[in-house]
């Protein structure tokens, strides 16, 4: 096997350095004194200060956080229901179409999703008078739609590998399916729900293309503001912002991993 040789470890090490080197250099240069992003001229935190004095950036960040929280929550409900249907209901009419609709947004190119939703919103506004104009609401709807697919995948995998006899026991003892779901199923799949929500949250926070299509005047999300800055070239305050985001995400993923690792021994005991 290769594993006894040198090839695999070296390939993996190179791969991981490829993944991390640009991020590490970005973090380092965010503390650079000079506005020339690539020449080191001394340690400084002034770009972080500049960040917190930029009302446009702060406003966009706040909007993005709200959108992310809302759409992740909607997606959590819809995605969990979809996962329950796909895993627990073996056969139902339109199952193939349903599973296709749930998973297609995962791979659908963003430009198509964005354009199609925008055209829908415009057509709906013409026909029904709703949604009036575009802004936070339309972005939330768009994000919830693709995040549902991600939540569904995460919850589905958790649902399909847990012991069904627990649910059957609850039902034998007279619990209704709804009661069983809330008392037995939900606590067991809770870690998956948390990671599904976090996944939806970060994906929404990250989206540039779809939001650009469905947002309206005055509702620029954080990635839209970043993109307009970055398009003009490298800017040191974006480095500082990126460092903060990387830091938060690293902490979040670490927390989620710990939660999942903790919940594993429990499963083994049960």
């Amino acid at each position: 096997m290769f594993s006894r040789g040198w090839f695999l470890p070296i390939a993996a090490a190179l791969g991981f350095s490829f993944l991390y080197a640009p991020i590490v250099s970005l973090v380092i240069f965010s503390f650079n004194e000079s506005s020339l992003v690539t020449v080191w001229s001394g340690f400084s935190t002034k770009w972080y200060g500049a960040l917190f004095n930029d009302p446009q950036l702060l406003g966009a960040a706040w909007l993005s956080l709200q959108i992310a929280a809302l759409s992740a929550t909607i997606a959590l409900v819809l995605g969990t229901l979809a996962a329950v249907a796909l895993v627990r209901f073996r056969r139902f009419r339109g199952r193939t179409l349903f599973s296709g609709m749930v998973s297609a947004p995962l791979v659908m190119p963003d430009v198509i999703t964005g354009l199609s939703l925008l055209l829908l919103f415009v057509a709906m506004e013409g026909l029904l008078g709703w949604p009036q104009g575009r802004g936070m609401l339309t972005i939330v709807i768009a994000h919830a739609t693709f995040c549902t697919a991600y939540v569904c995948v995460v919850v589905q995998s958790r649902l399909s590998d847990f012991d069904r006899s627990l649910e059957e026991a609850a039902m034998d003892l007279g619990a209704s399916p709804v009661r069983t779901f809330f008392d037995v199923t939900l606590p067991i799949i809770a870690p998956a729900l948390i990671s599904g929500w976090l996944l939806g949250f970060t994906l929404s926070l990250d989206d540039l293309v779809i939001a650009s299509f469905v947002s309206g005047p005055g509702s620029s999300t954080l990635p839209m503001v970043i993109f307009s800055k970055v398009r003009l070239g490298v800017s040191p305050d974006v480095n500082a912002l990126a460092t903060i985001i990387v830091g938060i995400v690293a902490l979040g993923v670490l927390a989620a991993t710990l939660i999942q690792l903790r919940s594993k021994p429990k499963k083994a005991r049960a």
């Binding site: 993944l19 991390y20 250099s25 540039l208 490298v234 990387v246 991993t257």
Partner: peptide, 20 residues
């Protein structure tokens, strides 16, 4: 986790990091 971590980090910012 090391594989997944960059995936959670902003896509846009990773492309930006690469351009730098």
């Amino acid at each position: 986790m090391l594989v997944v971590l960059p995936f959670f980090t902003s896509f846009l910012l990773r492309v930006y990091a690469l351009s730098g």
